[in-house]
């Protein structure tokens, strides 16, 4: 499994507790439109991911991270740096 694939798998695990309707999660799944997360929940989820990889994901980046795929790409870059 590539690094990104492993990262993606772990991100899905971290999102599941915030997915009460258990919708199918894919790279294209939108946090707001599909999972219907409010902005506070997104911030709580991101805090968990910061702790998981010991990285900083500034809140001002969040508007550009609309889908699970976009978030995975951003975290992959932060982890590599």
């Amino acid at each position: 499994m590539s690094n990104r694939a492993a990262l993606y798998a772990r991100i899905i695990e971290l999102i599941e507790p915030f997915n009460p309707k258990k919708i199918a999660l894919t790279e294209a799944t939108s946090f707001s439109d599909d999972i219907e997360m409010d902005s506070l929940t997104v911030m709580d989820l991101v805090a968990n991911m910061e702790d998981e990889w010991d990285i900083v994901i500034p809140l001002n980046l969040l508007p550009e991270l609309e889908t699970i795929g976009q978030l995975t790409d951003a975290i992959a870059k932060l982890v590599k740096d």
Binding site: M43, A47, V56, P58, L59, N60
Partner: peptide, 8 residues
């Protein structure tokens, strides 16, 4: 224009 970090 700062980067924003939120703590629990």
């Amino acid at each position: 224009n700062a980067d924003i970090v939120r703590f629990r």
